[in-house]
Design a protein around this nucleic acid. Structure first.
Lengths: 200, 200
DNA sequence: ACCTGAACACCGTTCAAGT
DNA sequence: ACCTGAACACCGTTCAAGT
């Protein structure tokens, strides 16, 4: 399928190296043949990002709303990190686009179940979504650079330590060691911070 | 100054239309003359994004830490929205880059002053930063599309309502009206959610 | 020290022509 | 219905040459 081939090219060489000509070469087809199926390169990229937002995992339905919400956003994070060079392009999709509906409805339903009114649920959902996007897209950056340099499967070096000039930023250097923690744990800590009023 | 001219071209026609040739035409200079001052187009864009992260406003120092922290991130939001087509490119800058230090130190210092230990302060800071980036870059998208269509100063239409197919997403449609609120208020509500344990 | 201009190896997209 | 191939109007970047 055309989208699958496009995703393979993106994951192998990075979204920066993706072009209609590169995709044509991969499919052994004239570079202009794709215009029968997608009006523009942008439309093709939008379709790719929608499949990343949607992901491949089932949304969980247990009896623990807090756990289910956490898992919803962990899934989004995993899907974005699986395609790190494509991840930043999800920002071109409005949050009202189809691919987000399932996640939005799932999260809002769990928040409702946990006793929140619609206004609070909407606020918490959006905060979780934007936090997840900001955190994960920042995280994807270093992974993406490794892919664009070394090709698919690159692991990206160890997370660089944050080293501010100590003389100028005394408070920051006390906190700096904690800014370097492993990213998954850091991500979950932020989720829990936002969800800390939910029953656990 | 070269950077100021580049920023003007970006703000007028959008980052998508920015090219070395366009900048050369704007400055009435050969398109390759810029390579004396910046090694690549990417280096030039990185310098531009750093000035956006830094912004033009003074960080506040009142006797209210919570207020100062809110203002820190509102400043970042305002600066990003002032250059909406450039905003997504801040994701290429690692959070440890120079332009973030001032904001990081300021926020961590205020959190410390409010009684937080370094580990909690680091967690809250990162959550606030990534939330702000996610929220603001999503918000910048519609502004950016207006600029790329109509040129500088475009206001971008009213915020599109989120209209999920009601039959499929009952919980979401209860919350949907609250997803459409004016963006500044929504942004601040998220900040307060993350900061709700701070003394006010 | 800085700018110029030709050149190279690319782009996205259109369109007439083929099967 | 789908693919081809030439063509158009662009790119970033290098490098020898000029002042």
């Amino acid at each position: 399928m055309l989208l699958a081939a496009a995703m393979e090219v993106v994951d192998t060489h990075g979204a920066g190296a993706f072009s209609m000509r590169a995709l044509g070469a991969f499919l052994d087809v004239d570079p202009t043949a794709m215009y029968r199926h997608f009006a523009t390169k942008n439309a093709l990229l939008d379709a790719l990002t929608d499949t990343v937002i949607r992901g491949v995992e089932e949304l969980p339905e247990t009896d623990d709303p807090r756990r289910d919400i956490r898992e919803n956003f962990r899934q989004l994070r995993r899907s974005l990190l699986a395609h790190p060079t494509l991840a930043p392009l999800v920002l071109r999709r409005p949050p009202g686009v189809g691919a987000y509906w399932e996640r939005a409805d799932h999260a809002v339903a769990q928040l409702h179940r946990a006793g929140m009114d619609p206004a609070d649920a909407a606020n918490v959902y959006q905060t979780l979504l934007f936090y997840t996007l900001g955190h994960t897209l920042s995280e994807a950056r270093q992974l993406a650079r490794a892919v664009e340099r070394e090709g698919a499967g690159a692991r990206g070096g160890p997370v660089a330590a944050v080293r501010p000039p100590a003389e100028h930023h005394p408070d920051l250097s006390d906190a700096a060691p904690h800014l370097r923690e492993e990213n998954e744990a850091q991500f979950l800590a932020g989720l829990d911070l936002i969800l800390r009023d939910l029953p656990r």
